[in-house]
Design a protein around this nucleic acid. Structure first.
Lengths: 209, 209
DNA sequence: GTCTATAGGGCGATAGAC
DNA sequence: GTCTATCGCCCTATAGAC
């Protein structure tokens, strides 16, 4: 039996660094987090961090891709009948965000907003995956799937922004059930409701980088 | 006649630095932007930037508060009858974001997501201003105003994220009119529609900094 | 007002002892 | 595997000549 992929972790130190990196990147973004901070949080020498992961960039990418199976997560989120899916989706989404996956996702979101190369990651990998899931599991018309996915992303990312990153009240302190009741109908409309005809495209004037 | 407030700009150099700072902060956030980059964009010596503005932090704050009268902007956004305000609001909001005010606001949003001390600025100044405007100009029940403002913020900030910062298609390239038609109904519901009873509060588990 | 020079510090990354 | 030491870079900010 040949071994495939990465070999087992070298030690428990490696796992400690991973946890510290996830926390630190989530809290401060890619630029704001430093290898020295991560090492300190993990109770480890800074040079060990690079010994295990090679570079800051690779460490970040390892955090993003480790222990989070995006496809499976998406399938679970969109499971069940399309009717009344909106409210269930918000509930599952928030529960998920308050666990380990949320810390990783916070790190990605915080970073994607300021670092172009990680914004590309969201654009080219996550968005298409959501679109595919909408078609396969929710039964959305393929011609409308990318539009519905983008609208979905706009409301859910904004919810994360308001509740977890900016902590705008009263959304930040509301119960998950209340938020799901308030925002569920929006999600439902983006998933299965009527939309304006075709998404006429005309690039906006861009001045924000 | 006594003079009040800041004296006139020392020179046209100062204005050039302001413009360059607005662009650079908008594109790269507070941490990612450097004084040297801003000086280079303005065609000016780096030390002049600090000569005029004192520190990087003060420069950023000056950019945020200069030439943007938040109260007036808000009043214009919410002007007109509350019926069908949703779609009009989105249209005005996007037009605004594609001008100078949008560059400043992008800078703030990019930064607020990664720098705690500027997140506080959004939380404690902008959110309450929106709440007040909802009561005074839209006629929202004061008891519900902060909830409606937060829901509004969640959808509009997410829209900005998807369209301008992450550039998720097809929302990034759609016309303003199309986006307004797609998202307007959501905004309308958050402004004047039915909401779940009281916003029961129970702090979520927080692990995202 | 504008520029040169540099202080003073934190960073990512590497080399090498143990 | 772990740690010490350090290189080389870029940064903000300041002092001072012009």
């Amino acid at each position: 039996m040949t071994r495939r992929g990465r070999r087992p972790a070298n030690s428990q130190t490696r796992a400690a660094v991973m946890g510290a990196a996830r926390e630190t990147f989530a809290a401060r973004g890619y630029l704001g987090a430093t290898i020295r901070q991560i090492a300190a949080t993990a109770g480890v020498d800074p040079s060990l961090v690079l010994y295990f992961f090679g570079s800051k960039d690779q460490l970040f990418r390892t955090v993003l891709t480790s222990s989070v199976d995006g496809r499976q997560l998406l399938s679970q989120l969109f499971d069940g009948p399309a009717d009344e899916l909106g409210q269930r989706l918000v509930t599952r989404f928030l529960r998920l965000w308050e666990g380990d996956a949320g810390a990783t996702a916070s790190a990605l979101l915080r970073t994607a907003v300021t670092e172009q190369r990680f914004g590309t990651l969201v654009r080219e990998h996550i968005a298409p995956a959501v679109t595919t899931t909408l078609v396969e599991r929710v039964g959305v018309d393929p011609a409308q799937a990318s539009v519905r996915a983008a609208l979905l992303a706009s409301q859910l990312s904004g919810l994360v922004l308001a509740r977890y990153l900016l902590r705008i009240e009263p959304i930040a302190s509301a119960t998950i059930d209340w938020v799901a009741a308030a925002i569920g109908p929006t999600i439902q409309r983006y998933l299965t409701g009527a939309l304006p005809t075709p998404p006429a495209t005309a690039p906006p004037v861009l001045n924000t980088g």
